[in-house]
Design a binder for these strands. Structure first.
Lengths: 125, 125
DNA sequence: CCACCTTCTTGACATATATCAAAGAGGTGG
DNA sequence: CCACCTCTTTGATATATGTCAAGAAGGTGG
């Protein structure tokens, strides 16, 4: 008999109803959205993205992007890869250099999900 | 004489113009936006937020939120604090319990910044 | 094939983050 | 004041992430 009043042995706090109902956002969906937001949630990547958005065709090569953020090229390459694998950029070889281009729909889809008021994921997955 | 052809000793790659011009997004601005996006970029916090958004007044107490994500209360408290210090939630004591409430304008401002096409920060800072 | 340019991968390291158990802080009610 | 409830802080730990140097990979041009 460890406690003075066992009361509800298992759990169930008193302050509020269980209502463990609707998870509203499954863990899978939450992780999928989090991956995309994580890709954006870094100052370096935001600077790279802002630069790309400001270019005529929203594209640039790595050698243009590295000086912008004043980091080593391997580091910039790492960031660009993260943006690419999240679907925010596409990459394309042009001769020796590689051009990264913005995928505006990807950013739009994330913005719309946030603005929907319910974190609805339709259109993002 | 380490190299066969020194050429351009300092730097300046050949592939593209320097054009180191417009940074388009200052490091300060990029960090400010990154802090807000980082607050959202976690599956647990997205689930908490989705639950709050689905509540009548977009608010709930910690004891409601912990069972939703199946994590310990200290951990949930940590996540809620991160959302609060990013301006995405507000907190308010009601007797023994603490109620967290969504600040829709904060989420809206982030969504608008992403959707603007230039990562313009007006309205977010 | 060789020298060179651009980009990427690997390995190493420091920092940041998510998580929990234990203890503290704030509040209610006998 | 004391027992209890709710929530947060602290300390510890494991994992993830950002960064660079060094070297590899892909491509161009003599």
């Amino acid at each position: 008999m460890p406690k003075t009043l066992p009361l509800l042995e298992d759990a169930s706090p008193i302050c509020c109803d269980p209502l463990g109902a609707s998870a509203t956002l499954s863990l899978d969906d939450a992780m999928a959205l989090a991956v995309r937001l994580k890709a954006l949630a870094d100052p370096t990547r935001l600077q790279l993205l802002a630069y790309l958005l400001a270019q005529p065709n929203q594209e640039a090569c790595t050698c243009d992007l590295a000086p912008i953020v004043k980091l080593s090229e391997p580091t910039v390459s790492h960031h660009l890869k993260k943006l690419e694998t999240s679907g925010i950029l596409t990459k394309e070889r042009h001769g020796m250099s590689v051009h990264y281009r913005v995928v505006p729909e990807a950013i739009h889809a994330i913005a719309r999900t946030l603005d929907a008021g319910t974190l609805d994921l339709s259109g993002v997955l």
